[in-house]
Design a protein around this nucleic acid. Structure first.
Lengths: 339, 339
DNA sequence: CTGTTAGCGCGTTCAG
DNA sequence: CTGAACGCGCTAACAG
């Protein structure tokens, strides 16, 4: 198989015309005869020409690629957000390059550096749990590359954000458990540097207060909310014989970990303990009717964040006012009448 | 915030030296004094220089990026494969760009075109369910961009493949059900154009034959194996009062769909119907002890496929013999003594 | 409508 | 060890 080195010059030479005409034809410029355009396209096809986007982008000093940085693509919330991002991006003629930080600041730094070096048009980012500030966004700033935070953000309020009303979500989740009769509700909490976890925690406290239930430090278990954390949280709860009857987990993964442990111990979840998780992980619809979830509109969020970003991209010269868009979440209760 | 346009020329000018020296210094060439190198690096830092990879790659006519194309990043098998790919790639100094075809041939075509235009160093691909031939790989071939199929491949045997022994997997799954006492085993099958589904089906038939059980057409339900398909398969089974006592699903998603339906109908899965799904979706460890799975080593597969690809990339000039690597899968039985 | 010229930012000759 | 010049492939400006 012959390696392709066909450039616009080759096809220009073969046709006895100039390469700039070829370039125009390939870009479907109106300033080329339909006739020569056809001739050029045919020749290009014939020679197996493939445009070199590197060169094109370098010359134009733009790219039609936006970068997306998420902690983990396998998390349902993020993959559905990515779906929304891709849809909105393709609609506007942009490509998407997806990167995962795996919750590691170091990787996040490398990714942003690489995106900046590749001159992406903009960046959508949901920061890792290790990220405590915006220092590593400076590369993008210096390069004039706009960025938008979605879902996860540092608690410093500035920049462009697309978020979910986590306070309300935390409040609703807790209220739901209280309505079901729970009086001793445990909270699995995440790093407080991330606004989402702080806000969910605040919502939890607010609901307790409103219902005149006491807040107890011992009922709050902090972790990075991995499945293993939930598993160990549940274990520790049982061992310390804490008298709990409900769990509000700040994400779905830890909730699932806890359920695994409880199931293993033969504790029937619906009757003894009510659990609310914070995500739209579809596993929750099957695993057990006990897991009520706070649904996060990932797909919609992705689209909105992308639109906001592209607005920045297109008005790169005129600095737009930063803004924060807050989306609503909604509680989805499982039908626990089914066994 | 000032937009960065700092090039090597700027930093050269600021230091009264030539840009080529700067270039060499930034690439850590041995042909530059340590002293001037330090001076240059310091100045680069000071001016906020950011290398332009577009220009660099254009000049060198290479990139350190490999493209990965999968049907869906949210599928556990693929996201764990991607994990393996990233690990192997980073280790060799390559970046990874992840794309999803969403099982659509049209999107797959666009993605490959875009990857070729961006001159990626190589491509790892798991084809969509709509893909019936290799025609759209020609762009890569012409561009001299090597590619490796992993997991999913067309049934045409050529090119580089990293696969799982699906025949054995299908056989093991069926044998497992037979060992548990099943006599009427239904098979949820996928598009036969994809080798994986054909091989799993063949394994199913072989196991039946070996155990002197009759093969019945009516027990084979073909679909694209989405969750909804599994759901409807189960529904159709119950409505047609087929006398079945086991299900072997060619993937996990359809198995989960079927379980949802059965659960909804109040059919206790462990006792009445045994199910084997084909994947390593972790949901299966929780959803119900009845779901035994054929575990696919996604992470390992990703690493191996990447190593194979990079070997091709590095020996681009000398055409290597195509090869197929086949990995083993293993059956993971759930502990059904637990309720 | 087409050709000419110049240059995007960088790396690699080749001299010195 | 460093500088000058050229060109990767493409496109924008200006002629004509």
């Amino acid at each position: 198989m012959e390696i392709n080195k066909v450039t616009i010059h080759d096809i220009a030479k073969a046709l006895g015309i100039d390469s700039s005409t070829v370039s125009r034809a390939l870009n479907d410029s109106s300033r080329v005869t339909k006739k020569t355009k056809d001739k050029i396209l045919k020749k290009a096809e014939e020679l197996g020409y493939q445009r070199n986007l590197l060169a094109s982008n370098l010359r134009k000093n733009v790219t039609n690629t936006i970068g997306v940085v998420v902690p983990r693509i396998s998390r349902h919330f993020f993959s559905s957000a990515i779906q929304g991002i891709e849809e909105a991006a393709y609609q506007s003629g942009y490509n998407v390059i997806i990167c995962q930080s795996l919750e590691q600041l170091e990787r996040e730094k490398n990714i942003l550096e690489s995106l900046a070096a590749n001159r992406v048009a903009g960046v959508l980012i949901s920061i890792s749990m290790e990220t405590m500030n915006y220092d590593h966004m400076n590369g993008l700033k210096q390069g004039g590359i706009p960025f938008v935070f979605f879902d996860r953000h540092c608690s410093i309020p500035e920049n462009n954000n697309v978020l979910i009303d986590d306070f309300k979500g935390g409040f609703d989740a807790t209220q739901h458990l209280i309505d079901k009769g729970c009086k001793n509700i445990v909270h699995f909490s995440g790093p407080q540097e991330l606004g989402i976890y702080k806000n969910r925690f605040d919502g939890y406290k607010a609901a307790l207060k409103k219902n005149n239930l006491p807040f107890k430090d011992a009922y709050v278990l902090s972790s990075r909310l991995m499945e293993q954390d939930g598993f160990e949280n549940a274990k520790s709860l049982l061992e310390n014989v804490l008298d709990f009857d409900g769990i509000f987990s700040a994400n779905d993964v830890a909730a699932i970990g806890a359920m695994k442990y409880l199931l293993n111990e033969g504790i029937k979840i619906p009757d003894d303990v009510a659990i609310v998780g914070f995500s739209n992980e579809p596993i929750s619809t099957v695993i057990n009717p006990a897991l009520t979830t706070i649904n996060q509109p990932g797909f919609e969020m992705g689209k909105i964040a992308t639109d906001l970003l592209l607005k920045q991209v297109k008005n790169k010269t005129t600095l737009l006012k930063t803004q924060t868009i807050i989306l609503d979440s909604n509680l989805i209760e499982r039908d626990s009448s089914k066994k």
